[in-house]
Design a protein around this nucleic acid. Structure first.
Lengths: 228, 228
DNA sequence: CTGCATCCACTTTGATACTG
DNA sequence: CAGTATCAAAGTGGATGCAG
C-alpha cells in the first residue's frame, strides 16, 4: 500500500515518496482543476485503471494531501490546505514541460476526449454569454464515435456532450485533431490553422471571435518555448 | 529502457514521464548540488543500486536534461540548460516538504553518511577561514564505523573524511545523530540542543561560533513549518 | 451508474556480486 | 572509477466481478 521509502531525511525525498509515483501528478492536476468525484477524476486520467486510481487516492489521503468528504452519501476527494499548496509545484512542472518538451512529442499523443474535456473546464466565458450557445466540434478524420463533440455555453458555465444534445448549432468548428490540440496547447495560432485550411469555422461571426479568444486563452500561451 | 507513456498531450504528463520515476528527483538534486561523477552521485543516493542510477542517467540524457562530458577519459554528468531550469521545481518540492512533512517523519530517517555529505557540500565558510581547521563530529550512540567524521575547512573549501586525517582537532562536536540532523534541517536550534545536553561543543570558541552559524545556515531555516 | 476488490501477466526495482 | 549481470521481490496494467 504505502510506497517504499528512500530512507533519506531530505524533504525532497519525502515529497518524492508522495508525488513521484506513476499517475500521481496527473491525479493532482485533476484535483487542482476541481474534479472531486471518482468518475470525474477518471475522465482526466482515462488510461489509469480504477483500482490504481483508488489506491493513489488512499495514498494521498494518508499523506495529508487529500481528504474525503461525504456528499449525498458519495465520497468526494478534496485537496487539504497542504494539497492546495502543491499548486506552485504542479504549475512549475507544467510550465517546464511547455517550455522544454518538443511539440512533436506533444502532438504525437493526441486524444479527442481528453482534449475536449480539457477545453471544457479550461475555457472561461468572459464576458459571460447572455443566452445558451452550442458549438459543435467535428473531426472528420477520426472514427465516427470520436468525430462529434458539443460544447454548450451558458453564462459562465460550459458543458460537454459526446452525443448530440439536440440544440441548434450556433458555431461549427471543423478541423484536424492535431490542429485544434496545437492551438489549445499554444503551439500555433488559430489564424494560422485557418489560413492553412486545417481548421474551418462556420456560423455566428461574433461567437466565432469569442471562441477564438477562448481557445487561445490557455495560460501557457504567453510563455515562449525554447525547443522546436 | 524508456518509461511507459501516459498518452496525454498535457505538458504535465510528459514532465511526469521524465521526472516522476523512482529516485529521479534525488538524482536531480545531486546534479543541482554540483555532483557530476558517477561515484559522487552515488554518495548522495547510497541506497540506489548502481544499475538503476546508470539507467536513470541515460534516461535523463535522452530527455535532454543531462549531458555527458568526458574529462580525463572519465564521463561526467552535467545539467543542460533545460536541466538547470528544473531548479525551481526541485526547490519547490523541497520547500513543500520542509513546510508540510512532519518532523517525526524526517527524524525517523537518520543517516550519518548522508548527513555529513550534505553538511560538507551545504556549508559555505563565509568569511573564508584563513588557515586549515579540522572539526570532528562524534556520534557516541552509533556503531564504531559510523561514529567519527572529520570536516576539514580551508578557505572556502570543505572536505569530509571518514577516517582520521591525522590533523590536530580544532573543534569537537559530540551529540546524537538525531539532534545534529534536527539542527541541520532547521527543526531545532543548536542552542536548544546544547542546553538540552544533546550536543556538546568543545574547542576554539571562535570556530565554535562560526560552526554554529554554518550548521544553521540551511536555506530552509527561515521558512516557517506548518505541521508538528 | 459509482467505487471499488480480485486475479493474473508483465515490468520495474532491490540486493548482491562481479568486470574492464 | 564506472559501471554490468543476475535473480527475487515488489509494483503496475488490464480484465472481470460485484455491492450499493
Amino acid at each position: 500500500m504505502t510506497n517504499a521509502s528512500y530512507g533519506q531525511f531530505c524533504p525532497l525525498a519525502m515529497v518524492s515518496e508522495i508525488l513521484c509515483t506513476r499517475w500521481t501528478p496527473l491525479v493532482l492536476r485533476e484535483l487542482h482543476c476541481g474534479s472531486a468525484r471518482f468518475n470525474d477524476l477518471r475522465r482526466g486520467v482515462p488510461k489509469m485503471s480504477p483500482a490504481l486510481l483508488s489506491k493513489r487516492l488512499k495514498e494521498l489521503v494518508l499523506a495529508g494531501v487529500v481528504e474525503v468528504r461525504r456528499r449525498d452519501g458519495n465520497p468526494e476527494y478534496h485537496l487539504t490546505q497542504a494539497g492546495l499548496e502543491l499548486r506552485p509545484l504542479v504549475d512549475a512542472m507544467m510550465l517546464w514541460g511547455h517550455v522544454w518538451v518538443e511539440s512533436t512529442v506533444t502532438l504525437s499523443k493526441l486524444d479527442p476526449s481528453l482534449l475536449m474535456w480539457d477545453i471544457r473546464r479550461g475555457i472561461r466565458p468572459d464576458p459571460p454569454v447572455p443566452q445558451r450557445r452550442t458549438i459543435q466540434f467535428l473531426y472528420p478524420e477520426l472514427v465516427p464515435a470520436d468525430q462529434n463533440w458539443w460544447l454548450v455555453v451558458e453564462g459562465a458555465e460550459v458543458g460537454l456532450c459526446y452525443v448530440d444534445p439536440g440544440y441548434e448549432i450556433d458555431l461549427l468548428v471543423t478541423g484536424s485533431l492535431r490542429s485544434v490540440t496545437s492551438v489549445w496547447m499554444g503551439l500555433s495560432r488559430l489564424s494560422q490553422e485557418v489560413a492553412a485550411r486545417q481548421v474551418q469555422i462556420d456560423g455566428d461571426p461574433a461567437l466565432a471571435r469569442q471562441m477564438g479568444l477562448w481557445l487561445e486563452s490557455h495560460p501557457m500561451n504567453k510563455v515562449p518555448r525554447r525547443v522546436a
